[in-house]
């Protein structure tokens, strides 16, 4: 593992000795290429990436817990607004047609294509919302320094597995393409849900950006241990006081 600030990489023999001498809980393997690293102590905004395949491995952020929770909550509220409010309004020669996000989901509901409606509903509403809810379930109980709720690890693992299937941002690009296609046919007015969905995409990007999996896994591990009366809670990155700026 290397920090961008480090210019000279460790010599190979020194690296092997460091790996051999480190306790198991300080070792991490790159999930992409299996290269073994000793976990470095990183401050907020420092990053460590794999020395072989350069995949980003650790990127802790200051006040990560409260920021992720705030962003996930905001995104969930925007999702609720996006589902309930009018999305797009089409006008042509005195005729009106409007569609909500749910109408778009139900576009395939007639006939043999019904399963696709379920899939679209899952990809643009259910999975993004479920992922945010799982993140809240894992992190919210830990906000005041407390222990995570039962099965937090499973919940967080599921949240990560759902990430590629959460397609809200892809849906918005699809909406943009559809608007261009319709532009010649009629005039379209975006409704409040349209802007809520745009906001949701932005907030989700910020949310994913602040989220550092390694810090969260460490916090879950040490706090579960502490709740069982083992360990000293020293390796809890989310419990560290914010460095740098003081309010």
């Amino acid at each position: 593992m290397r920090r961008p600030a480090d210019t000279a990489p460790l010599p190979d023999r020194a690296k092997m000795a460091a790996v051999a001498g480190a306790p198991l809980e300080r070792l991490r393997a790159c999930p992409h290429c299996d290269a073994l690293h000793v976990l470095p102590d990183l401050g907020p905004r420092e990053r460590a990436s794999c020395s072989r395949c350069h995949a980003l491995l650790v990127a802790p952020r200051s006040r990560a817990l409260s920021r992720i929770i705030a962003l996930a909550l905001t995104a969930l509220i925007l999702m609720a607004a996006a589902v309930m409010m009018p999305f797009l309004d089409l006008t042509e020669a005195g005729m009106h047609s409007r569609a909500s996000v749910m109408d778009a989901v139900m576009a395939f509901s007639r006939g043999a294509m019904a399963p696709l409606s379920i899939a679209v509903g899952a990809l643009i509403v259910v999975i993004p919302a479920l992922r945010l809810a799982l993140v809240l379930y894992v992190l919210a109980p830990m906000l005041g320094g407390g222990a995570p709720w039962p099965r937090a690890g499973q919940a967080f693992r599921l949240a990560n597995a759902l990430k590629p299937w959460s397609m809200a941002e892809i849906f918005m690009i699809g909406v943009a393409v559809a608007l261009v296609k319709v532009a010649g046919l009629a005039s379209v007015t975006p409704g409040p849900a349209f802007w809520a969905f745009c906001g949701l995409v932005l907030v989700t990007v910020l949310h994913d950006n602040v989220m550092d999996n390694e810090s969260i896994w460490q916090a879950i591990e040490t706090r579960e241990k502490a709740a069982r009366g083992e360990g000293d809670g020293k390796t809890d990155p989310l419990a560290a006081p914010p460095r740098g700026v003081r309010a």
Binding site: A107, I170, I173, G174, V175, V182
Partner: peptide, 23 residues
């Protein structure tokens, strides 16, 4: 995952363009 765009385009167009008999 970005290939899914076209499916969403179809979903939006089919839900939006419903001028009964006209279009």
């Amino acid at each position: 995952r970005w290939s899914m765009i076209d499916v969403f385009v179809v979903a939006i167009l089919a839900s939006l363009v419903r001028f009964d008999a006209v279009a």
